[in-house]
Amino acid sequence: MIKIKVNDKSLEIEKDFTIQQLLSKIGSPQDGIAVAINDSIVFKHLWSSQTLVENDKILIIQATQGG
């Protein structure tokens, strides 16, 4: 198990967890969001291959509509 932070909340996950697996684990929608790891945006087509490592800081931002 490794420790990461997701939107400033600590979480333990299996080693070699991908962004896509993380999103499923926390019940996050996969459309209309942006994901950054350690302040770097990760393109959606990389979510299934980008693995997380100890102490990564993940920021998940939900797009909103307004006017």
Rank of each mutant, 00 (worst) to 15 (best):
I61E: 03
V6K: 14
K9R: 13
H45T: 11
A34T: 03
Q62I: 09
S24I: 08
E12L: 05
W47Y: 10
P29K: 14
A34W: 01
I2Q: 15
L11H: 14
V35Y: 01
M1P: 05
A63I: 05
K57I: 02
S24V: 12
Q62R: 15
P29E: 14
I61Q: 03
W47K: 06
G27L: 10
S49Q: 05
K15E: 15
W47M: 10
D39L: 04
D16T: 12
Q65K: 13
T51E: 09
I13T: 09
N7G: 10
I61R: 00
Q21R: 06
M1F: 07
Q30N: 12
S24Y: 06
L46K: 05
W47F: 05
K3F: 12
I2G: 10
I13V: 15
Q50Y: 04
A36Q: 03
K25E: 15
D56M: 11
Q65P: 06
H45M: 10
P29D: 13
D31C: 02
D31P: 00
N55S: 13
F17Y: 08
I60D: 02
E12F: 01
W47I: 04
I37P: 04
N38Q: 05
T18E: 06
A36E: 07
D56V: 11
I41A: 01
K3E: 15
I41M: 14
V53N: 11
I19P: 06
I4G: 10
W47A: 07
L11W: 06
D39W: 00
L22G: 13
Q30K: 15
S40V: 10
N38L: 05
D39A: 03
T51W: 00
L23S: 07
I37C: 09
L23E: 08
I33W: 08
T64N: 11
D31H: 14
Q30I: 15
I41L: 13
A34F: 02
D8I: 09
K25R: 07
I60P: 00
L59F: 00
L11E: 14
V6Q: 01
D8G: 03
A63E: 11
N38D: 05
L23R: 06
D39E: 10
L59I: 02
E14C: 09
V35L: 02
I61G: 04
Q62F: 03
G67E: 06
T18W: 08
G27V: 11
L59M: 04
D56T: 08
D8P: 03
D31S: 15
W47G: 02
P29L: 11
K25I: 05
V53E: 12
L59H: 01
K3G: 15
K44D: 00
E14S: 11
T51R: 15
I13G: 14
N7E: 10
G27H: 15
N38I: 05
E54G: 08
E54C: 08
N55F: 13
I58E: 00
L22N: 12
Q21P: 04
T64S: 13
G67F: 00
I60S: 02
I4H: 12
D31I: 12
V35H: 02
I58V: 08
D31V: 09
A36P: 03
V35W: 01
A36C: 04
N55R: 08
